[in-house]
Amino acid sequence: MPREWTFVRGGRATIDEPLYRCPTIAYAAQVLAVVGAGVARAALRSARAWFYDLSHEVWETVVAGDEATDQQNAHLRRSCCWVTRSFPGSTRSWRPRCTTRPVPC
């Protein structure tokens, strides 16, 4: 490996470009954090979509004069748990104990 393609962790950059002047460890932490944020955002979007789809379905059922089915009730309750678990930052003070796992949409 040519020496110009190597670096000393925590040492000075050998390439004079803005990216290489960023603090190395902080930059690596940013990369990991943004991946985690993207995964969390995707999970929340999926959970919210399932929650709203189920809410609409149950609403349409009761508006039609029928009772919500046991399956609709169970799925709606599961979707509520999934939403609150998908975004812990907004539910830190109130987090229900859910014993069910989310069902993929």
Rank of each mutant, 00 (worst) to 15 (best):
F87D: 13
E17P: 06
V34G: 02
A37Y: 05
C80Y: 11
T91P: 04
C80H: 14
A33P: 00
P18G: 04
A43D: 12
D53W: 14
D66I: 06
R12H: 09
P23S: 04
R48I: 12
L19T: 07
R12Q: 10
R101N: 02
R77P: 05
R3N: 04
D53V: 09
C80F: 14
V103G: 03
A74E: 09
V34T: 10
V34H: 07
A64E: 02
F87E: 10
V103P: 01
R77M: 11
A29D: 12
R48T: 14
F7N: 03
A29M: 15
W82A: 06
T91L: 07
G36E: 14
E67D: 15
E67G: 13
C98V: 02
V31P: 06
R48Y: 09
C80S: 12
P18T: 05
R12C: 05
P104K: 01
V31A: 06
A43Y: 05
V63E: 02
V8N: 04
G89W: 07
V83M: 00
E17Y: 11
Q72A: 09
Y52E: 13
F87A: 14
A74Q: 12
R3M: 03
P23L: 02
E17H: 13
A26N: 07
V62K: 02
D70K: 13
T99R: 08
F7T: 00
F7R: 03
D53T: 15
A47I: 04
A26Q: 13
T24K: 08
A42K: 07
P102S: 01
W59E: 11
G11C: 00
A29L: 11
I15W: 10
D16A: 01
V31E: 09
R97M: 05
C80Q: 14
L19Q: 09
C80D: 10
C81Y: 03
C80A: 14
S55R: 15
V39G: 02
L32H: 09
Q72G: 04
A49C: 07
R21D: 09
Q71A: 13
P96S: 05
G89Q: 12
G65N: 00
R78K: 05
Q72V: 08
R48W: 08
W5C: 05
C22F: 14
M1E: 07
S90M: 12
R92M: 09
P96Y: 08
E17L: 13
R77L: 15
D53G: 15
R21A: 10
D16H: 02
D70P: 05
T61C: 01
R97W: 12
L54W: 05
V103E: 10
W5Y: 15
Q72C: 06
P102K: 01
L76N: 09
E57P: 02
A47T: 02
L44V: 08
A37I: 03
R48C: 08
A29Q: 13
A47F: 00
E4R: 08
C80T: 12
A28E: 12
N73I: 15
D16W: 01
H56T: 08
T99Y: 07
Q71Y: 12
T91H: 15
L76F: 15
T61W: 02
P96E: 05
T99Q: 07
Y27L: 13
Y20K: 02
R77N: 14
R41G: 14
T61N: 00
D66A: 14
W5R: 08
S93L: 12
G36W: 04
T91C: 12
S79H: 04
G89N: 06
